[in-house]
Simulated scan of single mutants.
Amino acid sequence: MYQWVVLFLFVSDILSKVIAERKLKFHPKSILGGAIHLYYVRNFGIAFNKLNHRKWLILTLNFVLLFYIFSLYTAPNMDKMGISLVLAGGLGNTLNRLFRGYVIDFIYFNIKGSPVFNLADFYILAGIIMILLEELMIV
C-alpha cells in the first residue's frame, strides 16, 4: 500500500514542478491576500541553498540518504507513512537535480527570510515530523 502513496506523491511533486515552470516562470502569482507567493526559482543547493552548485556532492548525499530511508521500510516499529513521505519527497528532488542540475521551487510564504519551497520539501518535512512523533510515543 505504501508504495502507492510514494508513487502518487512523487508524481504529484513532479507534475507541480512542470506546471510551475510553465505557468509561473514569467507570470508569478500571489494567493491568500499576498500571504503566499507562487513563482519559479531554480535551486542549485540544498537546505537553504547550502552546497550551492555542487551537483555531484548533493546527488551522492541524496542517493545515500534515499538508500537509508528505503531500508527503513524493513525496520520494525517504523512509521511507514512518514517514511513514504520522506521517500517521495527525496525521490522528487533527486530526480529534478539529476536531470536538470537544480530543483524547481515555487512556494514562498511572505515571511522575511523564508526560503522558497516545493511539494517535495513539504513531504519531507511532514514525514520527518511523523517519524519523530512516532518515536516520541514509543519511548
Rank of each mutant, 00 (worst) to 15 (best):
F109D: 00
K80P: 00
R100P: 13
I19A: 11
R54H: 11
K25F: 14
N110V: 07
F63G: 11
V86C: 15
H37S: 10
H27Q: 14
I128C: 10
M81V: 12
L7V: 14
F70H: 09
Y40D: 09
Y2C: 09
F109S: 01
Y2L: 11
G113P: 04
N52D: 11
W56M: 07
K50R: 07
N77S: 14
A88T: 02
V139K: 15
L72G: 09
P115L: 00
G127H: 08
S12L: 14
D79C: 14
L95I: 10
G90W: 02
S30C: 02
A47M: 06
K29C: 13
K55A: 02
K112T: 03
K23V: 12
I124V: 11
G90P: 05
V64K: 02
G113C: 04
Y73I: 02
K25C: 13
P76M: 14
G101E: 03
F67L: 15
R54G: 04
H37V: 06
L15R: 01
F44G: 00
A88V: 03
L85C: 05
S12Y: 11
L133E: 07
V6L: 04
F10A: 00
P76S: 15
I129L: 12
V18A: 06
R22T: 13
V11S: 09
D79F: 13
G90K: 01
A75P: 07
L132S: 14
L57R: 00
V41R: 01
L61C: 08
A126M: 11
F106P: 06
I129M: 13
G127A: 13
V86N: 08
W56L: 08
R22C: 13
N110T: 12
F8M: 07
V18M: 09
L85P: 06
A75I: 08
Y108S: 07
R22I: 15
N43F: 00
R100M: 12
L15K: 03
M78A: 10
I36P: 04
D13P: 15
D121T: 04
D13L: 12
A88S: 08
L98M: 12
I111E: 01
D13S: 09
R97S: 07
F10G: 02
V86L: 14
D79V: 10
L32A: 12
G34S: 08
L51G: 03
I107W: 00
F63I: 15
L98C: 08
L32C: 10
I138V: 03
L87N: 13
K17H: 06
I104T: 12
F26V: 05
M78D: 05
A126G: 12
I138E: 08
F70C: 10
Y2V: 09
G101S: 03
Y2W: 15
R100K: 15
A126L: 13
T74Q: 08
V6Y: 03
R97T: 08
N43L: 00
F44S: 04
Q3W: 14
I14W: 14
R97C: 08
I138F: 03
G34M: 08
I58Q: 01
R42Y: 02
K112C: 02
V116A: 00
W56D: 03
N96Y: 10
M137C: 09
L66K: 05
F67V: 15
L125Q: 05
I58A: 00
L9P: 05
N93T: 06
N118S: 03
M81F: 15
A20G: 06
M81R: 08
Y73A: 02
